Simulated scan of single mutants.
Amino acid sequence: MSNSNLFLKSGFVRAPLQNGIGRYVCQLQRLTLKFCKSHGASRGIRDFVEQDLVDFAKQNPGVVVYLKPRRHRGPVAVAEYLNGDRVWMSLQNKTHSEITKWIEVLRTQQGDVSGTRLRKYQYTDYPSVQGPWTPFTFKEPELNTASLPDPKFGANNRLPMTATEKLRLMFEQQKLTESDLKTAE
């Protein structure tokens, strides 16, 4: 173990696996914006609160937003996530557009994974040199923008016949053979 990992907290990855495959669950639980009503360094956060905060709250109903005015202090955003992590970010002397981007980053990430020494449940002396495999490893990148079903990416127009379709065809053939027998008599 290197010295850089001695002072990092250690933990397991507690984010939900495959978040967004079935449905997406926003991991941001609470956002606290602390700012001064008159300090010059809080200008950007005050603009964000006046212009974009109501829209942000409407678009993210699962995120609780707290505003905490405090005198003669620099602006700060504190994000709390479902896995228990808290991320503290200074917003001092940032513009309105920069603050909008940073709040979007806080909304879309899953906590402070960069400040954690990751441990795993399994251990091996000889880890794989091939890297991690995911179901999307060897997929075509064109699939990201294609509107599916597309015959270019598979034989979707030639799916195997279902049991109901087979029964319907058998019934129609039986009717035809019966009608042919009646006409032959």
Rank of each mutant, 00 (worst) to 15 (best):
A184C: 03
R30I: 05
E178Y: 11
D85E: 11
Y81R: 01
G111K: 13
L91V: 02
N144C: 03
S147R: 04
P16L: 13
S2Q: 03
L148T: 10
I21W: 12
V49E: 14
R117F: 05
G154I: 06
Y123V: 08
Q27S: 13
S42R: 04
S42C: 13
F138P: 02
D55L: 03
V76G: 01
F171M: 08
G154K: 15
T164K: 13
R107D: 14
T137M: 12
P149K: 00
Y121I: 10
A184H: 11
T134D: 13
E50A: 10
F48Q: 14
A15W: 08
R46G: 12
I99D: 12
L67Y: 06
R71W: 01
F7S: 03
D85G: 07
Q130P: 12
R46M: 13
Q122W: 06
A77V: 01
N144S: 06
R119W: 02
G154M: 11
T95P: 02
K37D: 01
P141V: 04
L53N: 15
T32D: 14
P151W: 13
M170L: 02
K68C: 14
L181S: 05
P141C: 15
E142G: 14
M89A: 14
Q51G: 04
A15Y: 12
L6G: 09
T124D: 03
R119M: 09
Q92W: 00
V64R: 12
F136M: 12
S42P: 12
C26P: 04
L17W: 14
K152I: 07
D52G: 03
A15S: 15
V87R: 00
F136K: 13
D180P: 01
L167K: 13
G44D: 13
A77D: 09
D47L: 14
E185T: 10
K68L: 11
T95H: 04
F56W: 11
K68N: 15
P69H: 05
E80S: 01
V105T: 06
V64F: 00
A146V: 07
D85T: 04
K166F: 15
L31V: 07
H96Y: 15
P151C: 12
R30S: 00
E50N: 08
S42N: 11
L167H: 15
I21R: 06
A79E: 07
A57S: 15
Q18C: 07
V54H: 03
V63T: 05
L106R: 06
L82N: 04
A163G: 11
R23Q: 07
G11R: 03
P135H: 13
A79W: 01
E165V: 14
R119H: 08
L67N: 02
N83I: 00
K120C: 09
T124L: 02
G44P: 15
F171W: 10
S90C: 10
E104S: 06
L159E: 04
N157A: 04
H96C: 15
R119Y: 05
K152F: 07
G40N: 12
L17N: 09
S97D: 10
L6E: 13
E104V: 02
K37V: 01
P16S: 08
Q59M: 15
Q173F: 15
Y66M: 13
P69S: 05
D55S: 11
P135K: 09
R107W: 11
L176N: 11
L91C: 08
K101N: 04
S42E: 12
P160R: 10
R46Y: 08
K166N: 11
D55W: 08
C36P: 07
A184G: 08
N93F: 05
I99Y: 05
W133Q: 11
